[in-house]
């Protein structure tokens, strides 16, 4: 192969290499959410109620404890799982039962979920139950929301539901 042709072919090979790198570095575009959609993020960390009752220690039991460890009551550590359900426009959007974290099941229960929803008016209903022994105990939220396109709406919880 003569030298000029060789150089031309090399330039072509490098051009192909550059084109390949340049194109796939940013193309084709990926559609994550549609422009008229919004995002709901459910992100909650909440500790369930402690399962079981505290028990008063007897005088002998207290006596047997080391001087720096004397307490009048013995309480269980395990916490109740937390149940969360969210409905949007009367349709179930999310439901989860989060176990408490930790080997002793005494840690926090966490929820995280992300949904893409059409923008517009929506009715959100959320229920959180944190005591398996008392199903009547529940935190509730019922709210009409006007959600604009591309909005990121966060549903959080601190002594009650928070919408950010």
């Amino acid at each position: 192969m003569n030298k000029v042709r060789l150089i031309i072919y090399q330039i072509l090979a490098y051009t192909f290499f550059m084109g390949f790198i340049a194109y796939l570095s940013s193309s084709p575009e990926w559609v994550h959410t549609l422009p008229d959609e919004a995002t709901i993020k459910v992100s909650i960390r909440h500790s369930g109620k402690i399962v079981g009752e505290c028990r008063d220690l007897t005088v002998t039991e207290i006596k047997n404890l080391s001087p720096n460890m004397k307490v009048p009551q013995e309480c269980p550590r395990e916490r109740s799982p937390v149940l969360l359900s969210i409905e949007m426009d009367d349709k179930l959007l999310y439901e989860s039962n989060a176990r408490p974290s930790g080997l002793q099941k005494d840690g926090v229960s966490t929820f995280y979920a992300r949904f893409d929803i059409p923008s517009g008016n929506h009715f959100i209903k959320a229920v959180l139950r944190d005591d398996a022994n008392n199903p009547k105990r529940a935190y509730r939220l019922e709210k009409h929301l006007e959600i604009i396109p591309r909005q990121v709406l966060v549903i959080d919880f601190k002594d009650g539901f928070i919408i950010k």
Partner: peptide, 14 residues
């Protein structure tokens, strides 16, 4: 902007 959702992204497919 974490308050606004991402629509289209030019992805590095490598």
């Amino acid at each position: 902007n974490l308050d606004v959702s991402v629509t289209n992204v030019g992805l590095d497919w490598f």
